[in-house]
Amino acid sequence: MGTGMRFNGCPSKNELASAPGVPSLEDLNRKPLAVIECIEPIPCNPCEHACPFQAITVGDPITNCPVLDPEKCTGCGTCIACCPGLAIFVIDMNFTAATALVTMPYELYPLPQEGAEIDCLGRGGNTVAKGRIHTVKTSEKFDKTALVSIELSKEFAMDVRNIRMC
């Protein structure tokens, strides 16, 4: 059995490394950026139109994977809620000296409380670390997809993609 998205539902390290929407660690260490974990040629482009800074390009054909321009991206998170695949995250690697801030789309009930301690889950649903809900943003523009930001130890920022309430 192979590894990667098609075989276990988790994009592998290689798949993520070759995704044009996933910025390099070097760039991520420099500034907050969107991380677009979109690795399949899906006919879909709302992210391209959502970005107020033209930092995301899908272009023609529409099955291109989104390309992120780390120079233009400000990590604002506008793209997160527009992705039908819920595949966009924003990582602020230097939120504090020791912690990173991971912002993710969240569509479950109930929404977490700001300040709550939570389990941070990896792409496979496994508990990776403890974290704290920093902010929960909702907006009419997000159309019921909340933006949940969690503060967690830096070393786990590239592995944590979900939360579970304790």
Partner: peptide
């Protein structure tokens, strides 16, 4: 199905 649909439920622990 699409990988992103699988990823959503996988990271929820299913």
């Amino acid at each position: 199905g699409y990988g992103v649909h699988a990823a959503k439920i996988k990271r929820a622990g299913i």
